[in-house]
Nucleic acid binder design. Sequence first.
DNA 1: CTGAAAGCGCTAACAG
DNA 2: CTGTTAGCGCTTTCAG
Lengths: 340, 340
Amino acid sequence: MAVTLKEVAREAGVNLSTASRSLHATYGVHTATRARVLAVAERLNYHPNRVARGLVTGRSHTLGLVISDVRNPFFAEVARGAEDAAYAAGYDLVLCNSDLDPAKQMHYIRSLLAMRVDGLLMNSVGDLSRADQEKLAAAGTPIVLLNRSPKNLGFSTATADNFQGGFLAGQYLARLGHRAIAHLAGPRQHSNLTDRTRGFLKAVQSAPANVSVVVVHGEHSFQGGYEMMKKLLARHRKFTAVFACNDAIAFGTIRASLEAGLSVPGDLSIVGFDNVEVSSIIHPPLTTVDQPKYELGRAAMEILLKRTNVPEHRMLGVELIERQSCRALVGPAAQAGKGK
Amino acid sequence: MAVTLKEVAREAGVNLSTASRSLHATYGVHTATRARVLAVAERLNYHPNRVARGLVTGRSHTLGLVISDVRNPFFAEVARGAEDAAYAAGYDLVLCNSDLDPAKQMHYIRSLLAMRVDGLLMNSVGDLSRADQEKLAAAGTPIVLLNRSPKNLGFSTATADNFQGGFLAGQYLARLGHRAIAHLAGPRQHSNLTDRTRGFLKAVQSAPANVSVVVVHGEHSFQGGYEMMKKLLARHRKFTAVFACNDAIAFGTIRASLEAGLSVPGDLSIVGFDNVEVSSIIHPPLTTVDQPKYELGRAAMEILLKRTNVPEHRMLGVELIERQSCRALVGPAAQAGKGK
DNA sequence: CTGAAAGCGCTAACAG
DNA sequence: CTGTTAGCGCTTTCAG
């Protein structure tokens, strides 16, 4: 089918190994010889067979990316960051959507290991059985985990500072003068989300004034946010602001508020988390905590590409993006009807 | 490093080839022998080396997906559809983001061919030089193109019925009684977008009443839509509806309209194209033409997996999703202030 | 049913 | 600087 190095060598009148050396651009071959080989390779449209090379070198120059779903804009960004970094380093990325299903996850991992990827980037490993986790660790393939605090086994991690993000949100709302805040927290037991909650509570507790908080849990999706908010509103709770633990929830919250005849930010201030692209597109533009998604993917990939065996942990900074979904209840801005 | 078949064979006291046969579940090996081999393989945690296998079989069970950018929700959906289909068939997918840059595209293609992927799913090939296109075709690797009308070389294609989608949009707006419509058409020379335009014009021209249309071109993005609309509004054009050739443009249009003090759909009806997830989340929920994105990816993958050498062309149906961004100017619904 | 042997395309010592 | 020689781990004839 495809032309092989052997044919190139024969055509160029040199030995197989000489041809091989010529292509690797290392020294140890006469310039004229190399030129000849290269010319022939070009003419024959030769392309080295990476699988053959991989077999002998033991490196595939391929990496695995296991995430829950690329359709989630967060992961799409991460994937892009990871892919760009891989591309720059001459690696290819195999995309796997696990839906967080442990069986599917293991299936992918097995497949990836079987194809001898040089490393794995995964967004979670917590759902795997202890045995599987150990098997994974034993495989010896470098692994970096996304979005997990550095407490996992011996794996490297790359994550945003979720605690700090939650803290920023709480501090912001408290400073605007909100004294009764609802926090839509997503599922329990979701380490990076609970970190946000912890940061938020910390900020609110350390605020100069007294702030009351009601925390509700639910699905971390548009629908989940919508439902949590509906329920909250039905209970006639008095609160002037909500901190949603991600943007999707915030969007659902806005929808539910609008449907209940509340204005945002007039009656209700809302801050989200993630800063997905849509948050600047919807109305009102959402004030949210930006998480450096692309950089997260890139940073994770960089760690992976180092191929060191000592686990490395990278935590990226977050930032509050002030838009138009919050209003100040105190201070000079309070009259204006909008935050800041 | 990893345990090899040879070790399994030795441990099981059989020959290498017997071990190999045992694993392939084909007949030709005594049941007891196979059981023994399987047991040993399990115990040793043996996993076949796919690269070695690939070298001899000539098939890598890996496919390439070259799209412009996964961060584009349209492609994320397509990618997911393709990946699911690949997964179901036991294939892995290598993700490549080309940004539509011909050089990057060729780089990826080269890399993919070098790793001997069994097929390629690409979203465009039009920017490649004639020579590169021919080289691609000559490589003999099965290729299916996304979103391209079936006029390309000998490649298979999978695309939505863009013409029909444009037609549906035009027909819908005309029926609602709109007689002056702006069409935000995206860049010229973008085959699937121009198909939408053609369908739209066809519908409008064949409408019973006279409908005037102004077509404007620009970037097919939120920003592009925003700018096109600003310009249009500045020219004091009189139109009651706009058909945006994709949802991103529609979102930009809505933003620009809102900023200009126009209400949607009160003063202006807007229909988009794509039905990305956000279109149901924004306010007002966008009436748009649904393109079966996930199915597109899956269909393309199915064609690819057939590995036939006769090009196949699949065109998927589209559907108008009526939400709340349009209003009727005639008929009983006109009073209600909303379409239907 | 099982073993022996060749070879996929390439790299990497090792001689020369 | 260049050629010879082993394999990498696996599948696949071909004998037995």
